[in-house]
Amino acid sequence: MSNDEFPAFSVLMSVYKKEKPAFLDKALESIEDQTVKTKSNCGCCGWPHRE
């Protein structure tokens, strides 16, 4: 399978302050290991306004 067979797409992922860093590492590794590669990846910091 090659990227030429699929339309370009991006991944948007929310990242929260209290999440374990290992979860982010695992998610990024998963994206990187996919057969069809993304055009871009974007992380969004979703800090709560109040704790």
Rank of each mutant, 00 (worst) to 15 (best):
D25Y: 05
S10M: 01
A27D: 09
L24W: 05
F9G: 01
F6G: 07
K26F: 07
E51K: 13
K17H: 12
N3K: 08
S10R: 00
S30Q: 09
K39F: 03
T35A: 15
P21Y: 06
E32Q: 10
Q34P: 02
H49T: 13
D4Q: 13
D4V: 07
C45S: 14
E5Q: 13
I31M: 01
R50D: 13
G46F: 03
M13V: 03
E5P: 03
D4K: 11
S40D: 03
E29L: 06
D25E: 14
V15A: 02
P21S: 08
S10K: 00
F6K: 06
K17R: 13
V15Y: 01
G46A: 07
Q34V: 08
E19Q: 11
E32V: 04
T35H: 08
D4G: 11
A27W: 05
S40W: 00
S40N: 02
F6M: 10
K17D: 14
W47G: 13
P48T: 05
K39T: 02
S14T: 06
K18Q: 13
K18V: 07
P21E: 11
N41W: 01
V15H: 01
D33F: 05
E51G: 13
N3W: 06
K20Q: 15
K17P: 10
Q34M: 11
A22G: 12
G43P: 02
P21W: 05
K39L: 03
F23P: 06
S2Q: 14
L24P: 03
K18M: 11
E32W: 02
C42D: 13
S40L: 02
V11W: 00
K17W: 08
S30C: 09
P7N: 02
I31R: 00
R50V: 12
N41F: 03
F6Y: 10
L12C: 09
E29M: 07
R50H: 12
N3P: 03
K26Q: 14
A8T: 04
D33G: 09
Y16L: 10
V15R: 00
R50W: 11
S40K: 01
E5R: 12
Q34K: 05
K37N: 09
N41L: 04
K20R: 14
S40T: 03
Y16P: 04
E32C: 05
W47P: 05
S14F: 04
C42V: 09
A27M: 07
Q34Y: 04
M13P: 01
C44A: 14
M1P: 04
K39R: 02
L12G: 10
K37T: 07
M1E: 12
L24C: 07
F6D: 09
D25C: 10
S14G: 10
F6I: 09
Q34H: 05
Q34I: 06
K39G: 02
K20M: 12
K26A: 15
N41Y: 02
V11E: 00
F9I: 00
W47Y: 14
N41M: 04
C44F: 11
D25G: 11
L28Q: 04
T38C: 12
P48G: 12
